[in-house]
Design a protein around this nucleic acid. Structure first.
Lengths: 341, 341
DNA sequence: TACATAATTGAAAGCGCTTTGGATGCCACT
DNA sequence: AGTGGCATCCAAAGCGCTTTCAATTATGTA
């Protein structure tokens, strides 16, 4: 069933039927009713590809999903997607997800943009110097970036959390508890948030004349295995750190396994603060020793970004171009006074 | 840059350029080279919406993502998606994901199908009596179902794992270890796999003249909270079960928390076997007491389903219509002899 | 009654691509 | 010279929708 058939069925022109369906005012209410009725009966749905071709809009936002045979799926991605979805469903938007090898990000994003399949783009996993930004700027298609690139003054639309502030505050808390030997378990070094978090830690330490030792920093994929390995490494150091900052509850999961295996007690021998993206599967309060965290909901960020993206496409704006969310510091049992030597 | 402009630039007709690009044989090799060269220089990309409109194909597979404001994101979904993506990227396919309220599944799926945005559909979370099947059958669009509906002889393309066999085997193992009091921690009752797993347990028990008590069965969302609650309930029963079968490592996560909180030892006081979807975040060997599991990779299923779907769209078939994968039973430390009373 | 105005509806031209059904020229073969 | 076959290329017709421009009818006003 297409427009032509439907209009013939109704004895109307395609023009009128189209207008009736799209809520144009210049069509008789009685006629509109008839059309709507016929749609119900026939189950007619406009062909999206044709709509897009005609209007240039198609009610979809595009994103690239990093993937590869060895590439481990990322709960963070899924959680963010849930947020996007929650908002998208309210506006009858959908996503076009282009899977791409992580090495092929820029090209994949460009393909997606030029394909004419999407109205707006979303980009995550920002790198310190992200080549995608230049491309996005040249594109004349709405986009929002999750995170920031470290380069320069950000002159692009983004939503980010105050990573530096979060880890600064967390470090301060540990300092106040008397800790002096710190370690940072971070995400991949090339990612923007990792750098900011590191800076937050360093600047808080600097205020007390402390520094983050080279060996007390790990940069790795945010998986629990990596958390385990990093913590094992930290625990073997001659001057074992007592305060651990951790970029994700996923890393913390492994880290804590290592702590337990070493026969140490979390919150006593070792204090740990993790960043909590509010993953349903890893609630900090459900850890055997509840985790002190810096918290910011990834899903909420997804919702918000979808709002901005969809709003922009629908010209429902204006939206603030740049948002920086504060995180919450929530103290639970994984932090305690520094142990006496 | 569109086809017309490109062809004018080259002094060729749109026809020839189109053919050159799509690998048709009736175009001079020299001409084809020129076209390809021009594409490189101009960065021309065909408009997908137009291609789809013209050909009816657009290189995309569609799926519905259940979501709602309260709806917790599901790691299983993300993991499966990773599998789909891994295969899709090899064929330059993408997904169209339509987020939909779980109550609106059928309608959402229909919208997606009729939208003309996708070449094939994927459907998961099969229900015992799934209304989507009838719709899919009426649609004349390729699809593959993950799981089966319980209704009747399955006459539709599916990929499923042998849920009944898996839980039958798991139960047998526990029986051999001398257990007599069983409990089943299952997924939502209306889902097909939950019923099959239950049947597997029941039939193994029946062979020994045992039955699954009513109070020893829980049906709930597969979250760790629900696992905790269910296990707490089991542990309070007057005749406490000693053998637990568990539909997911996610449930097991919570269940084990409950076991620990009750001061019981996994693998001694309580034996537990969980089904393992091979989620990177929940490796059974990483649990404090490594988990005995029935294993089948969700991601591998995603890869395979994408293969079948894409293959069908590309007429690269034929593919077996129905696949039933055996699961592996992997014995680790969470199972042990039944405790002496 | 005559004419301007508003309310409805339609015909047809795109949107950017694929594909059918010819053209055209060139060669080999009778 | 006449014929058929090949290799190349092109004009134009769609695919299913939106939107411009114009036509038609109904309504109100002088």
């Amino acid at each position: 069933m297409n427009l032509k058939q439907l209009s013939e069925l109704l004895g109307l022109s395609q023009t009128t039927v189209s207008r009736a369906l799209n809520g144009y005012p210049e069509v008789n209410e009685a006629t509109r009713e008839r059309v709507l009725q016929a749609v119900k009966e026939t189950g007619y749905r406009p062909n999206k590809a044709a709509q897009r071709l005609a209007t240039g809009k198609a009610g979809s936002i595009g994103l690239v999903m990093p993937t590869a045979p060895g590439h481990q799926s990322d709960v963070h991605f899924g959680e963010f997607l849930a947020g996007l979805g929650e908002e998208a469903v309210r506006h009858d938007f959908h996503f076009v997800i282009m899977p791409a090898d992580p090495d092929d990000e820029v090209a994949a994003l460009r393909r997606l943009a030029i394909s004419g399949n999407v109205d707006a783009l979303f980009v995550a996993y920002m790198r310190a110097h992200d080549p995608r930004l230049a491309m996005l700027k040249s594109l004349s298609m709405p986009y929002v970036v999750h995170g920031r690139s470290f380069d320069s003054e950000p002159d692009y639309p983004y939503l980010d959390i105050d990573n530096e502030g979060a880890f600064y505050d967390a470090t301060r808390l540990l300092l106040q508890l008397g800790h002096t030997r710190f370690a940072l378990m971070n995400g991949p070094m090339h990612l923007d948030f990792a750098i900011r978090r590191k800076n937050g830690v360093i600047s808080a330490l600097l205020e007390r004349g402390l520094a983050l030792e080279e060996g007390c920093m790990s940069h790795a994929l945010m998986t629990d295995e990596q958390g385990l390995l990093a913590m094992e490494h930290f625990l073997q150091l001659p001057e074992r750190p007592t305060a651990i900052l951790c970029s994700s509850t996923v890393l913390a999961l492994g880290a804590i396994r290592a702590v337990n295996q070493a026969g140490l007690r979390l919150g006593e021998d070792i204090s740990l603060i993790a960043h909590d993206d509010v993953l349903p599967l890893l609630k900090p309060e459900n850890f055997s020793v509840p985790l002190t965290t810096t918290r910011s909901s990834l899903r909420a960020a997804g919702v918000r970004i979808a709002q901005r993206l969809i709003g922009t496409v629908k010209h429902a704006g204006p939206f603030p171009d740049q948002e920086l969310w504060k995180t919450e510091l929530i103290v639970r049992a994984s932090t305690g006074p520094a142990p006496r030597p």
